[in-house]
């Protein structure tokens, strides 16, 4: 790693317009994921109220689909939604805020102002 390229004197700096842009995009990401999350988390009890098969059928002679979902499925789903939202948000932030002057290969040759 070429540590000569890291410049401590570069103060990181965001402008209000950039932050507003990232904020709007992140808000859209968060809201969409929340809608998906809410649909699933309320969908499971809603199905058990409306669909007899959901609580009555047996998977492999044991649990009903509803019970299996509440006992394992939803936790896996929460983790998946969380992971998706976290990676997407972080990737969006990395692309929409900050600059190109953090790369270590090029900045080393640069004159510091």
């Amino acid at each position: 790693m070429d540590d000569a390229g890291i410049r401590l004197d570069v103060d990181e700096h965001d402008t209000p317009a950039e932050v507003d842009a990232a904020f709007r995009t992140l808000r859209r990401v968060a809201v969409w994921h929340f809608v998906l999350f809410l649909a699933a988390v309320l969908g499971v009890p809603a199905l058990s109220l409306t669909l007899g098969w959901w609580s009555g059928a047996r998977i492999d002679g044991g649990m009903s689909p509803g019970f299996a979902m509440a006992a394992f499925g939803l936790y896996v789903f929460f983790l998946a939604v969380g992971l998706a939202a976290a990676t997407l948000s972080s990737a969006v932030e990395a692309r929409m805020l900050g600059g190109a002057h953090d790369d270590t290969t090029e900045a080393g040759t640069e004159d510091t102002p």
Partner: peptide, 12 residues
């Protein structure tokens, strides 16, 4: 096509 998809890796 929604905001559920997009970049996942933080490296540009």
């Amino acid at each position: 096509p929604s905001a559920l998809r997009g970049p996942r890796s933080a490296t540009v």
